[in-house]
Amino acid sequence: MADPSPASTRPRDAAIGTGAGRVLLLVYGIFALSAGARAGVQIATKFSEAPLAFLLSAFAALVYLAATAGLAIGGARGRMIALTSCSIELIGVLVVGTLSIFDREAFPDATVWSQFGSGYGYVPLVLPLIGLWWLWHNRPRP
């Protein structure tokens, strides 16, 4: 009988190496970079025009970065970081998305989460749902 390969003995929650997990990690990394770059430019060049919107974009970038790190770390600690980040992201996109529609004066310029992420093809709305689903589907089993 052959020895089990290291990949087959890995815990289920550390399976970020799978195709879907790698894609999720890549998308979160891209969003961390793009939201961070956007917020950095906006804060540096026109902060006084819409400080709330630009700070929310910077916050979104930090949430995406934390989710990326949690997914990359894996294990119980990484899983908790990713679950927390995806949950904060979902709440953030729902709250900011709703407020940006009903209180346009508070959001004179768009954030990553404005209008439920419409500026990013609604990926910010769908991404935390996919992330939470993936984490649930790949949770450790007793």
Rank of each mutant, 00 (worst) to 15 (best):
119 G>A: 10
121 G>A: 05
100 S>A: 06
95 V>H: 10
46 K>Q: 07
74 G>L: 08
109 D>P: 02
116 F>N: 07
64 Y>D: 03
72 A>S: 11
99 L>H: 06
73 I>V: 15
108 P>W: 01
67 A>I: 01
40 G>T: 02
42 Q>K: 04
116 F>W: 13
71 L>I: 00
57 S>T: 09
75 G>A: 05
43 I>S: 01
84 T>L: 08
78 G>Q: 04
71 L>C: 00
41 V>K: 14
111 T>G: 03
80 M>G: 15
74 G>V: 13
96 V>M: 11
45 T>D: 15
43 I>F: 00
95 V>Y: 14
94 L>V: 08
94 L>Q: 05
104 R>Q: 14
91 I>A: 13
54 F>E: 07
86 C>A: 08
79 R>F: 15
62 L>K: 00
40 G>M: 05
105 E>Q: 13
55 L>M: 12
91 I>H: 01
70 G>K: 10
84 T>R: 12
53 A>F: 04
85 S>N: 03
78 G>T: 10
83 L>D: 03
119 G>V: 04
40 G>Q: 13
92 G>H: 02
103 D>C: 09
65 L>W: 07
49 E>H: 13
49 E>K: 14
95 V>C: 02
108 P>F: 01
109 D>T: 14
124 P>M: 12
98 T>Q: 06
122 Y>E: 00
116 F>Q: 09
74 G>K: 13
123 V>I: 10
41 V>M: 08
77 R>V: 13
65 L>A: 14
55 L>C: 03
97 G>E: 08
51 P>G: 02
49 E>W: 03
39 A>Q: 04
46 K>S: 03
97 G>F: 15
101 I>D: 10
111 T>A: 12
92 G>R: 04
64 Y>C: 00
106 A>S: 08
101 I>K: 10
120 Y>T: 15
94 L>K: 02
41 V>D: 10
89 E>Y: 15
103 D>T: 15
88 I>M: 03
114 S>L: 06
77 R>G: 15
113 W>F: 06
118 S>A: 11
67 A>T: 01
88 I>C: 07
55 L>E: 08
44 A>W: 15
40 G>R: 04
63 V>K: 03
61 A>N: 04
101 I>Q: 11
69 A>C: 06
102 F>D: 12
86 C>Y: 05
113 W>N: 09
99 L>E: 06
42 Q>D: 12
49 E>P: 00
60 A>W: 03
95 V>M: 06
122 Y>A: 01
116 F>T: 13
124 P>T: 08
92 G>D: 06
100 S>D: 09
116 F>C: 12
46 K>Y: 01
111 T>H: 01
39 A>I: 02
70 G>C: 10
53 A>C: 07
115 Q>C: 02
42 Q>H: 09
119 G>I: 01
50 A>K: 01
105 E>V: 03
85 S>P: 14
99 L>M: 13
77 R>P: 12
50 A>V: 01
93 V>S: 06
109 D>Q: 02
93 V>W: 08
45 T>I: 02
67 A>D: 05
114 S>K: 12
55 L>I: 04
47 F>H: 13
54 F>S: 05
52 L>W: 00
91 I>P: 10
106 A>G: 05
119 G>D: 10
121 G>W: 12
